[in-house]
């Protein structure tokens, strides 16, 4: 098999496998770059492991949640029903009229309510 090997000046010479003892420059650069990229990916895995190890913050946050009795993340503070999605009054987004569109941008980032499962208002029977 004969390879047309390109030179830097753009011309090509005919080379064969037996006549190229070293990997050509371009391929070597590409392979080194790929290896560096893969090493960096490995680096992110190590970085993640290292930072997880030193992070006390998660436990501190969990403790704060327990002590203050919090139920939700402070991700979306723009509206009542987005601040505490797990406790939200799910009618609120449509309070103006039944077909009203949700005003708040984050309303579209919060999914439709899931069924409440066991903990549902309709599960219990009304006592006599």
């Amino acid at each position: 098999m004969v390879f047309p090997v390109a030179r830097r000046d753009g011309s090509a010479r005919s080379g064969s496998l037996s006549r190229s003892p070293f990997p050509p420059n371009r391929a070597a650069t590409a392979l080194v770059l790929l290896a560096a990229g893969l090493a960096a990916v490995l680096g992110t895995v190590l970085d993640a492991a290292f930072r997880r190890g030193e992070g006390e913050t998660g436990r501190g946050t969990a403790r704060m949640v327990a002590d203050l009795g919090l139920t939700d993340l402070a991700l979306f503070t723009e509206a009542r029903y987005t601040r505490n999605p797990s406790l939200a009054d799910l009618h609120t987004p449509f309070q103006d009229h039944p077909l009203a569109l949700d005003h708040f941008p984050s309303g579209s980032l919060i999914g439709p309510p899931t069924p409440w499962g066991q903990a549902s208002l309709t599960k219990g029977e009304v006592p006599e």
Binding site: G15, P23, P24, A27
Partner: peptide, 11 residues
């Protein structure tokens, strides 16, 4: 062969 092919491809 693969290295040469990569080189050819890059060129």
């Amino acid at each position: 062969v693969q290295v040469l092919m990569i080189d050819y491809t890059l060129a």
